[in-house]
Design a protein around this nucleic acid. Structure first.
Lengths: 186, 186
DNA sequence: ACAGCCATGTAACTCGTTACATGATTAC
DNA sequence: GTAATCATGTAACGAGTTACATGGCTGT
């Protein structure tokens, strides 16, 4: 007997199948890497397959015969997803921010270490932003209200604004650290 | 034979013991709820105890005799933490953002649903911000460069700016959704 | 020929959670 | 007296990871 409720990642993958096409496990993983990655998580390849098996067991997706196997969301799948969205609260985001974590304990190392970490982080944020911008650009032209990629575009813009905010916070924190003598705290 | 590397949460808890005091498991959990929660995670009570057991096994903390048992970081613990900070890269934050996730699939429900979700989120962000502000206020006076709570203050300010950014992004997204006809998409 | 991508899975394992269990002390 | 908080754990479980294994197909 299949269990009643699914992990969120399962719904997330199900949601990626609501854009009108049929995907292989491999392609679904790629779509996750282009979308989910930025604000949810990029499930491992092996997890994509096991979630697809689970979803198939629940008749929420249908495995189409052929080589390679493609998956399509079923009517029941759409209903299930819609009900989940309407009836269960979204919940508050969970952030695992190792940079903030280490900043908290910055007093156990040289300030220079912390500064270097923040500068590296700033670089990585820029890099991630660039990648997300590329994804965003690929949606251009199909992102008007009512069009297929309106929502993905809204989310991508959300992510871009988030990265901009992170970059700014990092810069401000670096400025504040600069007011301290080098080599202090330790 | 104890394993070589620890999960990040273990280091996080170890880090909470570097502020010069000795805590019970219960108190450590409270400190985690006041700090880690906002940008890492609030480990379950049971995990706090099992991490303390693990850390004790590695001699990174010392269980002090008495009722209740208090834990203090050892010299080896400080060295280990410092080495971890210096030698292992922090890594990029992982965000699990159910609101963004559902926004992505907004086309499977009424726009009104999505709007309601975002408004709820805005409310929750304000509430979290208020709680974090209270934590921040409790550090006032001990947050100057060189003082004990300088770094916690920097991190709290980071979190406040993050919440402000989320609030603004949410508001902007709501504005964009308002340009659509109600009841559209579905 | 070899690299790299497409494609699909299994097995072992860790992290972290919830549920359960217990009991002392403090506040009203 | 009884509710809340302090205090400490065990057990079962689930989500998600890495490592391993396999093999076809495509471009150079």
């Amino acid at each position: 007997m299949p269990r009643q409720d699914l992990p969120v990642t399962s719904y997330a993958l199900l949601g990626l199948l609501t854009f009108g096409d049929e995907l292989t496990g491999y392609e679904l993983k790629q779509r996750a890497d282009n979308t989910l990655r930025f604000y949810w998580s990029a499930p491992a390849m092996s997890q994509v397959y096991s979630e697809l098996t689970r979803l198939t067991g629940h008749r929420l997706v249908k495995a189409l015969r052929g080589e390679p196997t493609r998956y399509r969301i079923t009517a029941a799948g759409r209903r299930r997803l819609e009900r989940w969205m309407r009836e269960t609260p979204a919940g508050f985001p969970v952030l695992k921010h190792p940079v903030a974590l280490r900043l908290l304990m910055g007093h156990v190392v040289d300030t220079a270490e912390t500064v270097a970490m923040l500068e590296e982080y700033a670089t990585e944020v820029r890099a991630q932003r660039t990648e997300l911008q590329a994804v965003r650009d690929s949606l251009a032209g199909r992102d008007a209200p009512g069009e297929a990629f309106r929502n993905p575009a809204l989310v991508a813009d959300w992510g871009l604004a988030y990265y901009d905010s992170e970059a700014e916070i990092t810069a401000r924190t670096l400025e504040r650290l600069a007011t301290e003598q080098p080599g202090e705290e330790r």
